Simulated assay, not measured.
Amino acid sequence: MQIRSFPLGPLDTNCHVAWSGTLAVAVDPGGDPAEVVAFLKANNLTLTHILNTHLHFDHIYGNQALHAATGAPILACAKDAYMLDSELGSGGMWGFPKVTPFAYETIDEGEYTFMGLPCSVLHTPGHTPGSLSFFFPDGLGVPAVFVGDLLFYRSIGRTDFPGGSMPDLTKSVTRKIFTLPEETVVFSGHGPETSVGDERLNNPFFTEFIR
């Protein structure tokens, strides 16, 4: 599996494109996906799925456009569906544009196959009730996990939006992410990549977890 990240939209949300052979998935297209579509075409890649870690507006701006360009189905957790009826999911808050409506298929925790590779979909609430993380044990030569806004380099996602919960986020990170192999590369919704081992040792929100 190979991965390329495209910061998209008004909040520079990372849209991660992962591919193996000629098959690809896109995680969280948060803005105009023209650059992603061009990349797929230039590399003769077929997009099989659009994966949403959660349904905040800045992670889904490009869902419909990318679906229209590729035909790939959009997958998201039903526990976040309520947000699409509010500005937090449909856009419009803080002067940001509205989200183009889109249809999606529901997905929840379990074992799946994407790009011909095994993927463990982990339910990791805290930033939102329906936050999902996508763990590929056979990733980049080392495992890889896409966590959305659950965990960042040296930080964590906000829990003060409706549906957020600091206790839930802490539990999700410590029980679902920090239990992955320490070499697992962590791809977040904003900012640089990191690793499970690095965050276990150095993330200031979890120092009590390892010391």
Rank of each mutant, 00 (worst) to 15 (best):
I50T: 02
L51N: 02
H54I: 01
L55T: 01
L55G: 01
H56C: 05
H56L: 13
F57Q: 04
I60N: 09
Y61V: 00
N63C: 12
Q64T: 06
H67C: 05
H67M: 02
H67G: 02
T70G: 04
G71L: 06
I74A: 06
L75R: 10
A76V: 08
C77G: 10
A78G: 13
A78K: 13
K79R: 15
D80V: 06
D80M: 10
A81C: 08
Y82T: 08
Y82L: 14
M83R: 10
M83D: 01
M83L: 15
L84M: 14
L84S: 02
L84D: 02
S86H: 12
G89L: 00
G89C: 02
S90R: 01
M93P: 00
W94C: 00
F96E: 03
F96D: 00
P97R: 04
P97E: 03
T100F: 00
P101N: 12
A103W: 10
Y104N: 03
Y104L: 05
T106P: 06
T106W: 11
I107N: 03
I107H: 05
D108Q: 12
G110Q: 14
G110F: 12
G110E: 14
Y112G: 07
Y112D: 09
T113G: 02
T113N: 09
T113P: 01
F114C: 03
F114N: 02
M115N: 04
M115Y: 03
M115R: 02
M115E: 04
G116N: 06
L117P: 04
P118H: 13
P118I: 07
P118T: 05
P118R: 11
C119T: 10
V121Y: 09
H123T: 08
G126S: 14
H127A: 11
T128F: 10
P129S: 11
G130R: 11
G130V: 10
S131Q: 15
S133C: 15
F134L: 09
F135S: 08
F136H: 08
F136G: 04
G139R: 01
L140I: 08
P143C: 14
A144Y: 09
